[in-house]
Amino acid sequence: MALAQLYLSMFLAFFKIGLFGFGGGYAMLPLIQQEVVFDNKWITVSEFTDIVAISQTTPGPISFNSATFIGYKATNTSGHGTLASILGAAICTFAVSLPSFGIMTLVVTFFFKFKENRYVLAALYGIKPAVIGLIAAAGIMLINGFNFIDYKSWLIFSVVFLASIKRIDPILLIAIAGLAGFILY
């Protein structure tokens, strides 16, 4: 694909992610996955899961992290050099932040009107329960043959799930799971 065309479609995809990414973090995952894995096929499901893992262990919001990661990776895999790939990462990161920029600038300007606007409040009542569903969808979309290869995967899943409910630090849990993978596979 021509480079300019790839940049344009990445810009549009991440702009959309920024614009409809309500609920932050995990709630944005189904949207990101839909755009970059299913629709545009820039990365595979396993690579997407790896990005989520990397995001959980590095600073910064998941949407920035995936924008930077995918922008680089997609440009690189389509046969372009390091510099072009870095520019791709910059374009995606810029595109995902742009909607927030416009919306929050409006919010500052009309702060109190926004806070008490009945239509804004009513819209938020609708979004809140949907966001919980989107997070569950993010989990469901990642249960597949690429991430769960055998019974050992389910064993790791169950242990981490219970430990996380007991509020054990996620970074520690990922480190332990990585060690378990190294020993078991």
Partner: peptide, 15 residues
């Protein structure tokens, strides 16, 4: 192999 261990953990952390 490290990531084979991490992937199911990521899904658990989301749920």
């Amino acid at each position: 192999s490290v990531f084979k261990g991490i992937r199911p953990a990521v899904v658990a952390l989301i749920f």
